[in-house]
Design a protein around this nucleic acid. Structure first.
Lengths: 146, 146
DNA sequence: ATACATTAGTTGTATATCGCAAGTATTGTA
DNA sequence: TACAATACTTGCGATATACAACTAATGTAT
């Protein structure tokens, strides 16, 4: 139905816009920029990770990723460690300080999403999860502009 | 339920990441950058709009907005027109070329979202719209980090 | 075993993005 | 007629971004 197409576009548009704001406030409240905040989250989840893996996760060019890591290293939130087995690899890890910021981010996000659900009738929760899952699956097989 | 919180966070995270990719490919396929693409969409919808209104819609500082408009003017996609009633206002409009890009964007998005829905059972469409609406409403009353 | 290819990452370059602060020009108001 | 408010622009500094070209390390084929 035509109406659903327009509604879906508008709703996802607004959702992304809201999430962008969330990102911004999340980033600013942990004292980093947006890209840094996402980077810390991914490193924290993976514990240790290579630059290329990180770049792929965040859909960034590896050169961009490398420079983002530079900034985080300068801020002493992240360290680079050359892999002695394969000296091409660089293991990227959080420092103690980076880990504490990671925990703050995780906890804030937990609180935030819990508060969202608290404001939505409980019988709708399953349907929301299912809906997002369906959307995501559809997105995986449908690319734009080709 | 704790599980729902984690799922919701993960799903929205993935959704936003996918939408980011969509944005990128959308922008690149209409030959503009991401910010320019969003700007064109908003101007096209409003027909004509002031700089501050635009900045508010896109959650950007007006200085950033002003420079984005500069770029679009340089590319002859947008024109500035001083309002003769109140010479502080600048009316921002699409040029003929800008309008044709706007139409391409609108049509691509229409095609894309229709293709998403085509891959999802029709009886789920209403629930998806409802779910996104519920999420958005909850987001309006719940801000992160405060 | 040595030349060539591949992989991982960094640097050069150019542009875009972004917001704060300070500025200009215009209009409203006391 | 000053002073305030509004709409926008510019100066500045930092970050973000990707492509291309580079270095260094490892794998592979003859």
């Amino acid at each position: 139905m035509k109406k659903h197409v327009k509604e879906l576009r508008e709703l996802t548009r607004q959702l992304v816009r809201n999430m962008g704001l969330l990102d911004k406030s999340e980033a600013s409240c942990c004292g980093t920029t947006l890209g840094q905040c996402h980077t810390i989250t991914e490193i924290g989840r993976a514990q240790e990770i290579s630059l290329n893996e990180l770049a792929e996760l965040l859909n960034l060019d590896s050169s961009t990723m490398s420079r983002t890591i530079n900034n985080l290293v300068d801020q002493k939130l992240v360290i680079r460690e050359v892999d002695e087995q394969d000296r091409r690899y660089v293991r990227i890890k959080l420092t103690e300080e980076g880990r504490s910021i990671f925990k703050v981010i995780e906890s804030n996000m937990e609180i935030y999403y819990a508060s969202l659900l608290k404001d939505i009738p409980e019988e709708k929760h399953n349907q929301i999860i299912e809906s997002l899952t369906l959307l995501l699956e559809a997105m995986k097989t449908n690319k734009c502009c080709q």
